[in-house]
Amino acid sequence: MLPLHSPFYVEDLERTVLQCPEPDFFSSEEPMDLYYKILSVDADIERTADVTYPASSVFITFETEEMQRRVLKEMTHPKLSKSVVDSRYKFEGLVLEITEPDEPSSIRWKDLDELESVSSPVKFDIFSCYFEETFSHILIIDTDHSTRCHLYDHVRAHCVRGCYHCSCKKQKHYMVSDFDCYFQLSHPNGSEIFDFLRVSYR
């Protein structure tokens, strides 16, 4: 905290931080530590801002519900016959996946760039691990030693895969370009990301 009655500089973060006294032994974080963290975050933002990112989802709000329904009706195609879709309904040759989204307060903006082909295996692995872990305890009560070990191995195999995916997901957000994992392999440059259009009437 700044000393009482001393001037502080809104424009100059460093000068202000330098005025702060040294914290005592029990203080959680020093102002300078916080300052360096801010610099580090700024550097990360600078670095990531230099990369070009394609759009992952587009939300369109129509003036009337009639307009929204018309678009949904005209542009919703069977999944197996996308090749026969009229070219006027395509965006740069791409058939857009059009859905009616949830309310604005319900959208999870940080997860929108995840392709379904990427997120579904993760969900499956996490769920199967969870399911087996939950129900295996019941079976273990009534099984002999070898069956129990086999069961544990099976559960562990699933859980390890699930954890690996979890780790990938976490890393994806922190280390954009360096981490070579499932997600990066699935869509290395995001070139196929823009295939989703969410149409709503608000």
């Binding site: 801010i38 975050v41 759009a55 369109i60 929108l112 922190y174």
Partner: peptide
């Protein structure tokens, strides 16, 4: 219409901010 394109970068940027102490980052 109101149009909201969402670039894929948003999660990375936000998580970079969140990864350090959230309350302090806000100050920046």
């Amino acid at each position: 219409v109101a149009q909201v394109p969402v670039p894929a970068s948003a999660p990375e940027l936000i998580d970079l901010a969140i990864s350090t102490r959230k309350q302090k980052v806000k100050g920046r």
